[in-house]
Computed example of a mutant assay.
Amino acid sequence: MTDAPLRLEGVVATRRAGGAAFSLTIEALRLDPGALVAVTGASGTGKSTLLDVAALARRPDEAMRLEVCGTDAAALWSRGAKDALAGLRARHFGYVLQTGGLVPFLTVGANAALAQDLAGRRDPGHLAALAERLGIGALLARMPATLSVGQRQRAAILRALAHRPALVLADEPTASVHPDMAATILALLAEQARQAGAAVLLATHDAPAARAAGFVEIPLQPGAASARLPALAEA
Rank of each mutant, 00 (worst) to 15 (best):
T2R: 15
A4Q: 04
A4F: 08
L6I: 12
L6Q: 13
E9Q: 13
G10Q: 12
V12P: 04
G18K: 10
A21D: 10
S23H: 09
S23L: 08
I26W: 08
E27G: 06
A28S: 15
A28T: 15
R30K: 09
R30G: 08
L31H: 04
L31T: 15
P33G: 11
G34N: 09
G34W: 07
A35I: 05
L36Q: 12
V37Q: 03
V39E: 13
T40L: 09
A42V: 13
S43K: 03
T45V: 11
S48C: 02
T49P: 03
L50S: 05
V53M: 02
A54R: 11
A55W: 02
A57R: 09
A57G: 09
R59T: 12
P60S: 01
P60K: 07
V68S: 06
C69Q: 10
G70E: 06
G70N: 04
D72W: 07
W77G: 02
R79C: 04
R79T: 15
A81W: 14
A84T: 03
A84L: 12
L85F: 04
L85Y: 05
A86L: 06
A86N: 13
R89C: 03
R91Y: 03
F93A: 09
G94M: 10
Y95G: 02
V96H: 04
Q98D: 00
T99S: 13
G100T: 11
G101T: 12
L102P: 00
V103I: 10
V103R: 01
P104C: 07
V108G: 02
G109C: 04
G109E: 05
G109V: 02
A110Y: 02
A112V: 01
L114V: 09
A115C: 08
D117A: 15
A119R: 03
R121C: 12
R122N: 03
P124L: 04
P124S: 13
L127E: 06
L127H: 13
A128F: 06
R133F: 11
G137I: 04
L139T: 12
R142Y: 06
M143L: 15
P144S: 12
P144E: 13
T146K: 03
L147K: 01
Q151W: 04
R152H: 00
Q153E: 06
A155M: 03
P165A: 11
A166K: 02
A166Q: 14
V168G: 07
D171G: 05
E172Y: 10
E172I: 03
E172D: 09
E172H: 05
T174F: 05
A175K: 09
S176M: 14
D180K: 14
D180H: 14
T184Q: 14
L186P: 06
L186C: 05
L189C: 00
A190L: 05
A190V: 00
A190E: 15
A190C: 11
A190H: 07
A193Y: 03
A196F: 07
A196Y: 03
G197I: 05
A198T: 13
A198W: 08
A199N: 11
P208W: 10
P208S: 01
A209W: 02
A212M: 04
A212V: 02
V216N: 04
L220Q: 01
A224P: 02
A225P: 00
A227K: 02
A227T: 15
A227E: 14
L232P: 07
L232Q: 10
A233C: 12
